Simulated scan of single mutants.
Amino acid sequence: MFLHEERNTAFEWMPEMAAALETASLLDLERGNPQQLANMFRTFGHPALTIAKELGGAGASASSVAKLHTWVGAHCPSLAIMMTMHHHTVAGMMAARQFFPDIQGLLGLIARDNLLVASGFAEGRTNAPILESTMTVEKTLGGYLVNGSKKPCTMTHHFDVITFGVSCLDPEGRAQIGIGVGFADDPSIERKNFWAVPHLQAADSHEVIFNNLMVPEAMMCFSATIDDQLDDAQQGTGNHWFAIWFQLLVSASYLGMASALASRALAGNKGSQENRAMLLIDLQGATMALRGLAASIDDNRFLRRDLAHAQATRFAIQEAVNRISTHAFEILGGMAFMSSEEIAYLLVATRLLAFHPTSRLASTAFLCEQLS
């Protein structure tokens, strides 16, 4: 059975949501109200999947979460994107909790109340690394005042908690990245509609604006605080937690979308045997690359070279996704395109992986330095 292991994982961790997705129309979900997907995720999708059991979460492995995302991506691309933004952020906070004790309380709250977490980092900014930010932060007696905007931001109208990146100088003049936390009901957070295209519209990706958002000191975590407690080989690890998890989950989600097209092509037994074999080779190669990256995360590998491996894996999967979707589209043929809106929708949706951070151009020097 196609995506057999991924399906088993989905039914193991979220049986009610998996059953609903398996019987629903992909286009009905994609064209529906984002509230429907957010409610499904919050109620049945296990938002605490990557949170440790001692904090009330499931303690799922990266290998399991990656399989889950591939299966969801094949059945509801917009939901897979919602889950990517939530899970990579929560997993990054899990790793950072040893340096910022107050995050542990927030993670416990997320697990207890099934809160959804939006990711307000560098999405949508050309050539920007994932944690880079243009938002400003000002230290005050009460904490930090944050101003700026993030667009697009998935789950704009439906998040409970939002994390975001800020760039600033510490008292010694060192550049550092800060990761702050805000809550949906804060009056300093404004939302503005932004996404105009029909693809992935149900992911609710619009603009979030911060107007003098006050962030308590305990909810603003700076990279220098982590680096000061690490040896030379581990410098930057605090940033890598979020970035590596993101590359894993965004790759898994889009591989799922490409797999949905491939499954339709293979089920019809169309095209030549050679074409079908090439499709299967690309699927297998991308799947094994994804599982290798997940295994390295489960081995707690988050050093600078590991980030390079994660980025390289993502770009390799991105190219495979493009080939898979194109070959599947050709195998299915013009009549399938004219008679099934899902096929055209999935073909375009798979191409959007290229727009997620980090871009190849932004990564070129880093990859050459670390991998050559």
Rank of each mutant, 00 (worst) to 15 (best):
Ala128Glu: 09
Thr358Glu: 01
Arg112Cys: 07
Glu190Asn: 02
Thr313Cys: 05
His158Phe: 06
Asn322His: 03
Glu342Trp: 00
Gln35Ile: 07
His199Glu: 10
Thr225Pro: 03
Glu6Met: 11
Glu22Ile: 05
Gly256Ala: 12
Leu249Tyr: 10
Leu107Ala: 03
Met85Val: 13
Thr70Ile: 13
Phe222Thr: 15
Lys151Gly: 01
Asn39Phe: 04
Ile51Asp: 07
Gln370Thr: 05
Pro216Leu: 10
His157Leu: 05
Ser253Asn: 11
Pro129Ile: 14
Thr163Asp: 00
Ala58Leu: 15
Ala96Asp: 11
Gly292Asp: 08
Gly120Asn: 02
Ser119Pro: 06
Ala277Gln: 06
Ala344Val: 00
Ala95His: 08
Gly178Pro: 09
Leu361Phe: 09
Asp160Thr: 13
Leu293Met: 09
Asn127Ser: 08
Thr43Cys: 07
Ser359Tyr: 12
Ala252Pro: 11
Asp170Arg: 04
Thr23Glu: 11
Ile179Cys: 12
Ala18Ser: 12
Ile209Gly: 12
Ala203Met: 13
Ile81Trp: 03
Thr287Pro: 02
Ser149Trp: 07
Ala20Glu: 04
Gly256Ile: 05
His356Asp: 12
Asp231Arg: 01
Ala58Phe: 07
Glu217Trp: 03
Asp204Gly: 09
Phe159Glu: 13
Arg314Cys: 02
Glu6Phe: 01
Phe41Pro: 01
Ser372Met: 15
Met335Arg: 13
Ala233Trp: 02
Ala52Trp: 05
Val90Asp: 06
Gln370Cys: 05
Ala243Gly: 02
Val348Asn: 08
Thr89His: 02
Leu283His: 03
Val181Phe: 12
Leu361His: 10
Ser340Trp: 00
Phe2Gly: 06
Leu303Ala: 09
Glu319Thr: 14
Leu361Met: 12
Ile177Val: 15
Ala308Phe: 00
Glu22His: 08
Leu230Thr: 05
Val208Arg: 00
Pro357Met: 15
Gly180Asn: 05
Met135Arg: 00
Asp299His: 08
Ile81Arg: 06
Ile297Gly: 14
Ala320Ser: 15
His87Phe: 13
Ala128Asp: 03
Gln318Asp: 08
Met214Asn: 03
Glu172Asn: 15
Trp13Asp: 01
Ser223Asn: 07
Met40Asp: 10
Lys270Met: 05
Glu190Gln: 08
Ala66Ile: 13
Ser188Leu: 00
Cys153Thr: 15
Ala24Leu: 07
Trp241Ile: 13
Met214Glu: 01
Leu261Asp: 04
Ser253Leu: 10
Ile317Asp: 08
Gln235Gly: 14
Pro357Ala: 12
Ala233Thr: 10
Ala62Asn: 02
Gly236Pro: 02
Cys76Glu: 07
Gly292Tyr: 09
Glu123Lys: 04
Glu16Trp: 04
Phe355Met: 13
Trp13Ala: 05
Phe183Leu: 15
Glu138Ile: 11
Asp186Phe: 00
Asp282Ser: 15
Leu131Arg: 04
Phe11Arg: 01
Val146Ala: 06
Met335Ile: 09
Glu12Lys: 14
Thr126Asn: 08
Leu26Tyr: 02
Ser325Leu: 03
Pro129Arg: 04
Val166Ser: 10
Arg351Asn: 12
Ser63His: 03
Asp113Trp: 06
Thr136Ser: 15
Met219Pro: 06
Pro171Thr: 09
